[in-house]
Amino acid sequence: MPRQRSSATTAECALEKGLRRRWRLGERAIEGGIFLASLLAIVVLLGIVALLLRQGLPIFSYTPPWAFLFGTRWYPVSEPPTFGIAPFFVATLWVTAVATAVAVPVGVACAAYLSEVARPAIRETAKPIIELLAGFPSVVMGFIGLLLLSPLIQSMFNLNTGLCGLAAGIMLSLMSLPIIVTVSEDAMRAIPDDFRQAAYALGATKWEVVRHVSIPAALSGISAAMMLGIGRAIGETMTVLMIAGGALAMPVSPTAPMMPMTAAIASGIGNAVRGGLQYQALFAIGLLLFLMTLAVNLVADAVLERQKRKFQR
């Protein structure tokens, strides 16, 4: 079909230019929106850090940092008040250690079963049920711990009280289990099937494939899952406030009643007058919590990085 080429080209060209310009405008608007969203996250983070520093640092002019970190006496409403958070710090370590020790082996084993062994029908039913566990509000987990777990632990270990770090840690492990299972399972399923086929071709049993192929290959994902689980356990407040016992003594074993850092903040912040010494001390605890989760994330990053390099060889 004959056409008047030149004029058509010019018209098309103009049309295309207009379209492209409009297209570019729209694209840039979207780009800007996305940029703004990511900027917002950073600004909020910086704002929180600034707030923690501003409200928390002044305490160190009353209690020197070493006395604050290693002091074992916390009497914020006495005259004169003393602020030593070592028992809270150790309590957080105990509770997190118990939660990790329970949740990681169970979670990884569960993920390995779901991704490597279970028939699809079982997997499709079991996974949503496990994920449902994450939907329980922490206060409900606290109640369950208070009414069921803590009497059980008391009679099992013949303790004075079942309100202790062990009970809190076990409840926390239930709360971080869904995260660990879901993320580890996704990591294992993402491994190319060639890996497994190659191992089976060499005569490996199912257990050998899981043990020597799937878990090592998914280790970066599994360690990310672990870190997410630990982060959840460090930051959880309501459950530990309800069942960790809340004693101020330095916890010498996980079966002692203890007050983790989050519980210390929650049980004190309501009473603290804004800008008062106790208020500042509680913000300083918050700052320390933030630094701890930051450290966990940095370690997770380092592990992931090493894992990646290992696989490149």
């Binding site: 079942g162 309800m242 809340g246 004693a247 101020l248 003594a249 330095m250 929650a266």
Partner: peptide, 20 residues
């Protein structure tokens, strides 16, 4: 004393006393 358990609510204390 350092071994006192500090509880977040009165009902939690009643609950624990009733069972301990």
């Amino acid at each position: 004393g350092p071994n006192v358990l500090f509880l977040p609510s009165t009902s939690a204390g009643i609950e624990e006393t009733a069972g301990n």
